[in-house]
Design a binder for these strands. Structure first.
Length: 656
DNA sequence: ATAGGGTTAG
C-alpha cells in the first residue's frame, strides 16, 4: 500500500529528482509517511493537499500533478489552485487532466469550480470545453453565467452571449453589474456582419431600469460600446450623465472622440480632464488616445506639446505610449522623427515594429517596410496578424505585387497565421490597384471566410481607379446589403458611372442615397500654420482670405495651361459643361489649403496638408506643378497615405 | 462562503 502510493516510486519514472521528495537512502523516515498511514482515518492526506497547493503557488504545476494521485481527498481549494496553475502555464492537456480528476473526486456539480474551469478553458482558447462545463453544471450561480459570457465574448461569440442573456432573462435570473459589462461587450465582440447596436440600446435600458446608472464600471463599458459602434453622441450623452467618473471613464471618452473622427473634441476633453478634475490624472492609456488625436489631425505642433507632457509626466518609457509616438510622428509627416523615437527605445515588442512598418508603408517606402518586417523576424520576434496588415498595405501603396503575393503566401506556410478579412482586403487592394481586377475578384471567390464589407470595399475602390463598371456593380450590390448606411459606397459607384458617362445611372444611385437619408461626406482639407489649424471645404466662405485664394489659384491654373495642363474634371458628379466643371475642380478644398499655405506659411517651410478623402487626380497634378513653380515642398496626407511633392514630382510615383 | 468587470499602441 505504502509502496504503491509512494512518491518515491514516481520519482523513478521522472528523469530528475524533485527536490521535495524524501529519499529512501536517508536514514530518517520520509516526512510524509505519517500522514499517509491509511490506518489513521484522521490523516487523510492533508499534507499532500498543502504540498500541492504550495507547488501550484510556486508555479511548479508538473510536480503538483505528480503528487495529486497520492492525495486521497483533494479539497476544493486544491483544485482551484491547480486549475489556476494550468491557465498560468498555458497547458490545456494538464487542464483536461485536472478536470478529469476533479470529476472523479465528485466535484462535478460544484459551481465554484465550474466557474474556475470555464475561466481556465477560456484562457486556454478551448471554448467548446468551457461551454460543456456550463451545460453540465445544474446549479448555475450568477458566477457561472458570467464566466461563460466572458469566455464567449472574448472568443468573439457575441451573438451566442446575447441569446443566452435572453434565456437568462426569460428564466428570471437577475443580472448583476458584471453581467452587464459582459453583455455590453458582447454586442461589439461579434463576428457576424449585422450590427448589434439595437441590442446594446436594449441593454442600456435594462441597466437604467435596474439602477446601475451611477455605476462607474457599467457606465464606462456603455460609453465604450457606443464608441465602438461609432455613435459618438450617444457615448458623450452617457458620459455626461455619469455622476462619478474616473481616469478610465475619461480615457474611454477621449478614445471615442479620437477614433471616430472628432480629434478636436478629444483635445477639448483632455484639457477639461486636466483642468477640472482632481482625482482623474491622465495615465499612459489616456495619452495613447491623445496621441491618436494628434495623428488624426496631423498636427505636428500639438504632437510635440503632448510629447513634452508625456516626458514631464514620466510616461515616456511605456511601450504603448512610445509606439503611439512613433505613429504620431510618422502620421504628422515626420517619418525621421518616428524612426528616431524607435531607435531610442530600450525595449521593443511586435507592436513597436508594426508601428514602424506601417509608417514607412504610408509614406510609400514599400521596400523599406518589407526590410523592417524581415529585420523584426531576424531579431526573433514573431509577426502578428497586424504585422501582415501593415506590410501588405505597404506593398499595396508601392505597387509591389509580387512581393505582396509572396508575403501573403508565407502567412500560413511560415507563420501559421490564417488570413482574416483584413488581409484579404489588403490583397484585393494590392491586386486591384495594380489593375489586376480579375485576379482580385478571384481572391474573393476563393476566400474561405465570408468576405465582409472591407473586402468588397477594396474591390469597389479599385474599380473606381480603373473604371470597371461591371465589377463595381457586383461589389456595390453586396455592399448595399452589408452596410446600407455607408454613404461612401454610393459615392464611389456614382463616381464610376460618371466617368463612364452613364448619367442616368448616376441619377439613380444619387436618389438611392437620398432615399436613405445619407449624404456624401464633404471633402475637407486642413493645414497647420503657426500652431493654428485651418480647415477648408470647397464651399468655404468663412476664411477672410478666400477671394485671394481663388484669385491665386486661377492665376496658377492659367500659367499651368500654357505649359500643357488640362484640368481633369471627372471627379465632378454633375453633367455640366466643361468650363463649369473646371471651376468646381479648381475650388477643391485641397487646392485652397495649398494656396493658403503659399500665402501664409514661412518661406521655405514645407506645406503640410491633411485630407479626409483620397486625393483627386486634378489636385494631384496641380500640386505637382505648384511644388515646382513655387519651389515648395508640399506634403499631403490623404485618407490612405502620404504624397510628398517636390520639384514637380510626387513620392507616390502617380500610383495611389 | 469563496470568485469576476470598464479605457490603451499597429
Amino acid at each position: 500500500m505504502w509502496a504503491l502510493h509512494s512518491p518515491h516510486n514516481l520519482q523513478s519514472s521522472s528523469t530528475s529528482t524533485p527536490f521535495y521528495f524524501p529519499t529512501r537512502t536517508s536514514s530518517r523516515p520520509p516526512i510524509c509517511s505519517l500522514t499517509l498511514n491509511p490506518s489513521n482515518p484522521k490523516n487523510t492526506g492533508t499534507n499532500y493537499n498543502q504540498l500541492i497547493q504550495s507547488l501550484c503557488k510556486q508555479g511548479s504545476l508538473k510536480q503538483a500533478l505528480q503528487v495529486l494521485p497520492h492525495e486521497p481527498n483533494p479539497t476544493q481549494h486544491t483544485y482551484e489552485l491547480l486549475i489556476l496553475s494550468c491557465s498560468l502555464q498555458n497547458s490545456l492537456s494538464d487542464g483536461l487532466d485536472v478536470h478529469r480528476h476533479l470529476l472523479d473526486a465528485g466535484f462535478d456539480q460544484d459551481p465554484f469550480l465550474a466557474t474556475k474551469l470555464i475561466n481556465m478553458y477560456s484562457e486556454l482558447d478551448s471554448i467548446d470545453d468551457a461551454r460543456e462545463v456550463f451545460d453540465k453544471t445544474r446549479k448555475r450561480t450568477i458566477y457561472v453565467w458570467n464566466a461563460l459570457f466572458r469566455a464567449l465574448t472574448l472568443a468573439g461569440y457575441g451573438q451566442e452571449v446575447l441569446g443566452l442573456y435572453r434565456r437568462m432573462n426569460q428564466i428570471g435570473i437577475p443580472s448583476d453589474r458584471f453581467t452587464y459589462t459582459y453583455v455590453l461587450k458582447a454586442c461589439v465582440a461579434s463576428e457576424c456582419l449585422i450590427s448589434l447596436l439595437h441590442m446594446g440600446k436594449e441593454i442600456h435600458a435594462h441597466i437604467l431600469r435596474h439602477g446601475y446608472e451611477s455605476h462607474v464600471h457599467v457606465m464606462t463599458t456603455l460609453v465604450d460600446m457606443y464608441a465602438r459602434f461609432g455613435c459618438v453622441s450617444y457615448a458623450s450623452c452617457v458620459f455626461d450623465s455619469m455622476p462619478v467618473r474616473n481616469v478610465v471613464s475619461w480615457s474611454a471618452m477621449i478614445a471615442c472622440y479620437a477614433k471616430n473622427g472628432s480629434p478636436f473634441e478629444a483635445f477639448e476633453l483632455f484639457r477639461e480632464m486636466i483642468l477640472e478634475t482632481h482625482d482623474s490624472v491622465p495615465n499612459s492609456v489616456t495619452m495613447v488616445s491623445v496621441l491618436q488625436a494628434c495623428s488624426a489631425l496631423a498636427s505636428l505642433e500639438q504632437g510635440k506639446l503632448i510629447h513634452g507632457y508625456i516626458l514631464r509626466r514620466g510616461l515616456d518609457s511605456i511601450l504603448p505610449v512610445i509606439s503611439a509616438l512613433v505613429t504620431m510622428y510618422a502620421r504628422c509627416g515626420k517619418l525621421e522623427l518616428g524612426q528616431l523615437v524607435f531607435d531610442r527605445m530600450a525595449k521593443r515588442d511586435v507592436v513597436s515594429w508594426n508601428s514602424l512598418i506601417s509608417s514607412y508603408g504610408i509614406h510609400g517606402f514599400g521596400k523599406k517596410s518589407i526590410q523592417i518586417f524581415q529585420e523584426m523576424i531576424q531579431q526573433g520576434l514573431s509577426p502578428s496578424h497586424i504585422s501582415f496588415v501593415s506590410v501588405l498595405g505597404a506593398c499595396s501603396h508601392a505597387g509591389l505585387v509580387e512581393e505582396g503575393k509572396m508575403l501573403f503566401e508565407s502567412m500560413v506556410k511560415e507563420h501559421r497565421i490564417y488570413p482574416s478579412v483584413e488581409h484579404y482586403a489588403c490583397m484585393v487592394d494590392l491586386l486591384g490597384r495594380a489593375n489586376q481586377l480579375d485576379e482580385a475578384a478571384k481572391i474573393i471567390e476563393d476566400m474561405r471566410i465570408e468576405p465582409g464589407p472591407k473586402v468588397w470595399g477594396s474591390l469597389l475602390g479599385s474599380c473606381r481607379i480603373h473604371c470597371n463598371v461591371e465589377l463595381a456593380e457586383r461589389a456595390s450590390r453586396r455592399l448595399f446589403e452589408l452596410e446600407p448606411m455607408n454613404a461612401g459606397n454610393y459615392v464611389l459607384l456614382t463616381d464610376i458611372y460618371a466617368e463612364a458617362n452613364m448619367w442616368g445611372e448616376v441619377k439613380r444611385v444619387k436618389k438611392l442615397l437620398e432615399a436613405r437619408g445619407l449624404q456624401k461626406l464633404p471633402g475637407r482639407s486642413w493645414i497647420e500654420v503657426k500652431r493654428k489649424i485651418y480647415s477648408f471645404t470647397s464651399v468655404e466662405e468663412l476664411n477672410p482670405q478666400i477671394e485671394q485664394l481663388h484669385a491665386l489659384l486661377l492665376k496658377l491654373s492659367n500659367e499651368m495651361k500654357e505649359q500643357g495642363y488640362v484640368p481633369q474634371t471627372k471627379a465632378v458628379l454633375y453633367d455640366l459643361d466643361a468650363e463649369e466643371k473646371e471651376r468646381i475642380v479648381l475650388g477643391h478644398s485641397e487646392k485652397l489649403a495649398v494656396a493658403f499655405g503659399l500665402i501664409n506659411a514661412s518661406k521655405g517651410e514645407t506645406i503640410r496638408i491633411t485630407k479626409n478623402l483620397r486625393l483627386c487626380e486634378d489636385c494631384h497634378s496641380v500640386t505637382k506643378f505648384i511644388s515646382k513653380f513655387a519651389n515648395r515642398e508640399i506634403l499631403v496626407r490623404d485618407v490612405n497615405r502620404f504624397h510628398h511633392f517636390k520639384d514637380g514630382i510626387c513620392s507616390c510615383g502617380d500610383y495611389w
